[in-house]
């Protein structure tokens, strides 16, 4: 069966990035750890050979997968993240000064992206007041509370991953794979979405859409998903016959 088609639909991850990807652009990359990352678009970004990227992403992948692949090839100049604990190559490049790093508290990062996509230049938050995060930022004291000015974030390109999408770019995420994807979809000058299954308009219930198609300029159906688990944790099954 052939895939649905439409003006936003691209055949491959590489073709969906063509004409958007240039050296030194800012890219937002959805996901939390390896959960809900745009697996195919990250590979295509690496294969494009683009360099000097500023990447906004909560995490930096692991050594062998996700954004870790772009670190390995030294295509990332700067990361804006909240937690990067799972990546040895990241550590090495950061400690040697090859990689620039800006830490944002996770909620501040999420809100900066949401604000950027919603046309809000900045906002005041209590998060980070009195810490390193507030240094150099405008602050206001209201009724004894200190509020820190944080600015909205936008990107030249956002790459997001959803469970289902239609040819109009409407997206539905699955479980905790939603995470940063909806806000990043709104904050990209060009947003490219990859979905596990691309369908015709009408196949997704309009009431169930998480990201309306206006935020998505290009969409692909990912050819394959590894859906790697970072920290597999299980419990023992109760013994059979014991009540």
């Amino acid at each position: 069966m052939s895939l649905p088609t439409g003006p936003k639909v691209y055949a491959t991850a590489a073709s969906a990035l063509a004409g958007v990807v240039r050296d030194n652009i800012t890219v937002m990359s959805g996901g939390f750890g390896l959960c809900g990352i745009a697996e195919n678009l990250i590979v295509a970004l690496r294969d494009s050979g683009v360099k000097g990227l500023t990447v906004v992403s909560n995490n930096a992948g692991v050594d062998e997968y996700g954004l870790g692949m772009l670190l390995k090839t030294r295509q990332i100049r700067k990361m804006i993240s909240s937690y990067v604990g799972e990546n040895k190559e990241f550590e090495r490049q950061y400690l040697s000064g090859e990689l620039e790093l800006e830490f944002n508290p996770q909620g501040t990062l999420a809100e900066r992206i949401r604000a950027g996509g919603a046309g809000i230049w900045g906002f005041y938050t209590r998060t980070g007041a009195g810490t390193l995060v507030a240094e150099g930022k405008e602050q206001r004291v209201v009724d004894g509370e200190t509020w820190v000015l944080e600015k909205g974030l936008v990107a030249d390109l956002s790459i997001v991953k959803a469970w289902r999408g239609d040819t109009e770019g409407n997206l539905i995420y699955r479980k905790t794979a939603r995470n940063f994807n909806p806000m990043m979809a709104t904050a990209g000058r060009v947003t490219v979405a990859e979905v596990e299954k691309l369908v015709e308009p009408g196949e997704l219930a309009p009431d169930q859409i998480h990201t309306p198609g206006i935020f998505v300029q290009r969409i692909i159906q990912g050819p394959a998903y590894r859906r790697q688990i970072e920290n597999r944790t299980i419990r023992k099954r109760p013994a059979a016959g014991v009540s």
Partner: peptide, 17 residues
């Protein structure tokens, strides 16, 4: 989850299933 019922789309903030 029980073994075999892990879902890569369902993790906590420690990235545990």
């Amino acid at each position: 989850p029980f073994e075999g019922e892990e879902d890569p789309d369902l993790i906590n903030a420690g990235k545990q299933t």
